[in-house]
Design a protein around this nucleic acid. Structure first.
Length: 434
DNA sequence: ACTCCACAGGAAAATTGGGGTA
DNA sequence: TACCCCAATTTTCCTGTGGAGT
């Protein structure tokens, strides 16, 4: 491993490393994208026609998270904007945040409106009035609008693609003199299949695929980013390789590789160590995972937190796979204790499904014959931490240290059933992690 | 073969609450 | 102020179902 150290003393080293660290931040858009030449070329070719006053095709970009879709898009659209001296207006919309036709249309209209006073309120207007306003404002300008719909698949999940149809209809090229294109970004390769034919033909005019990076490519990316870091001499090659290897195992996620590197460096800086080694990377990985856990618990809506608390407390006294019925019962008690209106079991069932999606619990549907059919579930990991994080919510702090009274085994769940369920859930956890 | 448990989860109605106009 | 429009959330109502017990 080649390690050289251009610095005289620690002070300088620490400072220098801090200085350039923003090249590892998530919002940093690099100038050069190793192993994405092909995708960039395709996009430039597709969008370049705008410079000749033609309409660009709508694009869909496919690729897992951290494969550069968003960064490349930002990079190219920035260039386009500069090349046309701001005649091209780029509207970046994250469909997870703006997931209704209404909110998206409002965002679009407001981004082509420079006057702060004539912005449309985020609520209250009839949709057709917003369309009308959009057409008026478009026709009154000579701008070319590029709408980037990030995580476009969220729109299909939500209301079966209706949103997309409504939006496509509203931004119909014919109506506004062919001065609008849409770039859709999605994680799912099967996204187009789920689309309605009428939407698909209009949206999916051209698609570009971002393959996952392999470990070697990830290493190149890290090396490229670190090139501008003043403290590069303090990072061991093996540490870089390890970041690349860990991220490669996780569907070739460059963002993860970069995050790991950044956390490793921050860790080394904070502890005044003079080098970033594999040890820092391993520790960064752990910290990273816990940070993600903390944030995902912290950002849950209140009742989802209460449901999660119910799951944690129930599991603790039961020490076996638990099921919807008892979770709901305990959830109800907790709400009562807090003098809060409890949600219905139907709703709680959905919240449990959400928790499963996020990965905070694992669950499966199983019938126990006459004993009924339920969703059985378990918190796979970090039970204590999850409880701690849930209880950070001020409204729930009274539950610190609370334990549920021992519950008798409900229904006809036998020891065999129990073992069976435990195995099934474990298998699911393994599949998830492996 | 039939029953029946304890739910899952789809569909649609109802409620909530911001924001509009008259 | 009264009343309308909108999206989002939650409730209500409902049908469906895997498999042990009979």
């Amino acid at each position: 491993m080649s390690t050289y150290n251009p610095f005289e003393n620690m002070e300088q080293k620490v400072e220098a490393a801090f200085e350039g660290l923003n090249v590892l931040s998530s919002s940093y858009v690099p100038e050069y994208f190793p192993h994405r030449e092909q995708q960039i070329e395709s996009m430039v070719k597709a969008l370049g026609v705008i410079l000749k006053n033609n309409r660009a095709s709508n694009l869909i970009l496919y690729g897992k998270s951290g494969t550069g879709k968003t960064s490349v898009t930002k990079y190219i659209t920035n260039m386009l904007r500069e090349a046309t001296s701001n005649k091209v207006r780029v509207i970046y919309i994250n469909c997870q945040v703006y997931d209704s036709p209404y909110s998206i249309m409002v965002t679009i209209v407001n981004s082509i409106t420079d006057d702060v006073n004539s912005q449309i309120p985020s609520l209250g207007w009839p949709l057709d009035k917003i369309y009308q306003e959009f057409l008026n404002r478009m026709n009154g300008s000579n701008k070319y609008v590029l709408v980037v719909l990030d995580e476009i698949d969220k729109l299909v999940e939500k209301n079966g693609g209706d949103s997309l149809y409504v939006i496509l209809k509203a931004v119909d090229e014919e109506l506004i003199g062919s001065r609008i294109s849409i770039i859709g970004i999605t994680n799912y390769t099967s996204f187009a299949e789920k689309l309605d034919a009428r939407v698909r033909s209009r949206l999916n005019q051209e698609s570009i695929i971002f393959q996952p990076y392999d470990a070697t490519q990830l290493r190149d990316i890290l090396a490229e980013r670190l090139k501008s870091l003043n403290g590069k001499g303090v990072i061991e090659d093996s540490a870089i390789n390890l970041c690349a290897a860990i991220a490669a195992r996780e569907h070739g996620d460059a963002r993860k590789a970069i995050d790991l590197m950044r956390i490793s460096i921050e860790m080394a800086i904070r502890e005044h160590s003079d080098k970033v080694t594999e040890r820092e990377v391993y520790r960064a990985r752990n910290k990273f995972e816990l940070d993600v856990l903390h944030e995902s618990v912290r950002s849950l809506p209140l009742h989802t937190k209460i449901v999660l608390l119910s799951v944690v407390l129930t599991q603790r006294v039961a020490n076996r796979p638990i099921y919807t019925g008892e979770v709901y019962e305990n959830y109800r008690r907790i709400c009562e204790e807090l003098s809060m209106q409890a949600l219905t079991s139907r709703r709680v069932s959905d919240l449990l499904a959400d928790l499963d999606d996020i990965g905070l619990i694992v669950s499966l549907n199983k019938s126990l014959g006459r004993a009924g059919r339920s969703r059985f579930l378990r918190v796979p990991d970090h039970l204590d931490l999850i409880e701690e994080y849930v209880l950070e919510d001020e409204q729930l702090s009274t539950f610190k240290g609370v334990k549920l009274s021992k519950q008798q085994r409900l229904r006809g769940i036998t020891e065999d059933d129990e073992r069976d369920l435990r195995d099934l859930l474990n298998a699911r956890i393994d599949r998830h992690q492996g």
